[in-house]
Each structure stands twice: as structure tokens, then as C-alpha cells.
Amino acid sequence: MKCPFCSHDDSQVKDSRPTEDGAAIRRRRQCEGCGARFTTFERIQLRELTVVKSEGRREAFDRDKLQRSLMIACRKRAIDPSRLERLVSAIQRQIETSGESEVSAATLGGMVMDGLKALDSVAYIRFASVYKDFTEAKDFEDFAGSVKDIGSK
């Protein structure tokens, strides 16, 4: 494992333990070159996943990008980070177990919307504003009205 501080190629594992949800192994490492310590996470990956964008462009599925998007939508909300981590893991697992190596961005966005709807209505609306490309205040008003309808059923 390459050191993030000095780019030395060798590091020694000092400690390994499973994460809280058991979906990954957390490893503390020490660089053989500069002695700095850093943490890595090892996760099971069933297959290489590709996201097909709406214009047809393909890019590798990036778990960290998904997690950053969720964190932005949930910024300043009282949501436990471990719940976001579980949501990201559940979405990734759902994609991997679908049997397909490619997933459309629309399908992925729908999975995120479903997860956020169950988690927090404000985060759900924030994510939808980007995902559905709201262009004016009326878009927010209409969408928020539909969310209110969902919550009252």
C-alpha cells in the first residue's frame, strides 16, 4: 500500500478490525519510509461496476462519490454518519447482487432517492433538487408538496 504522505511503496499493518457494520476491514498502517500512520479500508467487491450516464458516457462506480453526495444532501441534518454508511453499503450491495455489471445513473439515483426518502425528508428534497435538476422555486414547491403528501399517508 502506497503511503499517502511520502508515496513510499511499502507499509506495515499495525492493527486490523472489522467496521461496525461488518462490511469492511479497517487497517491501521505505518509507512516503512517516513513512519507516518494512516488508515485503509478493505471491502468485498463482487464485480467491477460501471455507471452509464444519461448521455451514454460510462464511468466506474465510485463508492466515495456516492457517499459524498449523500453527505452533501444530509449536511447540517441530525443523521448519524453510520446510517449513511449503511445506506451506501446497501445501495452498493443491491447493485452488485443484481447480476449486472452496468447500472444506469437513473437507476442509481432512484435507489438513493428511495433511501433518503426513508431517512430524512429534507435530505430527500435536497438530493432531488440536483438529481431532478430543479430550475426555479416552483419546482421545489411542487416537489415538497408531493413529499408532504407521502408523509401524510
Rank of each mutant, 00 (worst) to 15 (best):
M1N: 06
M1W: 03
S7F: 10
S7W: 07
S7Q: 08
S7K: 14
D9E: 15
S11D: 15
S11V: 07
D15R: 11
T19I: 11
T19G: 15
A24D: 02
I25G: 02
R27V: 01
R27L: 00
R28W: 00
E32M: 06
G33S: 15
G33E: 12
G35E: 08
R37T: 09
R37W: 09
R37C: 03
E42T: 08
E42L: 04
I44Q: 07
I44Y: 02
I44K: 03
R47V: 13
L49Y: 09
T50F: 05
T50Y: 03
V51D: 03
V52R: 14
V52K: 13
E55A: 09
E55V: 00
R57W: 00
R58P: 03
E59A: 10
F61A: 05
F61L: 06
R63Y: 03
L66I: 14
L66D: 06
R68P: 04
M71F: 05
M71E: 15
M71Y: 01
M71L: 10
R75T: 06
A78T: 07
I79W: 07
P81Y: 14
S82M: 13
R83E: 15
L84I: 13
L84T: 01
E85W: 00
S89H: 08
A90S: 15
Q92S: 11
R93G: 04
R93F: 13
Q94K: 15
I95Q: 02
E96M: 08
E96S: 04
S98F: 13
G99P: 11
G99N: 12
G99I: 06
E100T: 07
E100D: 14
S101A: 14
E102M: 06
T107H: 12
L108D: 13
M111C: 07
G115S: 07
L116V: 08
L116N: 01
D120A: 05
S121C: 02
V122E: 06
A123E: 09
A123P: 12
R126A: 12
A128R: 01
S129Y: 09
S129R: 07
V130W: 11
V130D: 10
V130L: 12
Y131E: 12
K132F: 09
F134H: 05
F134W: 10
K138L: 09
F140V: 03
F140E: 02
F143L: 07
A144E: 08
A144H: 05
S146W: 01
V147Q: 02
D149K: 15
D149H: 09
K153W: 01
K153E: 12
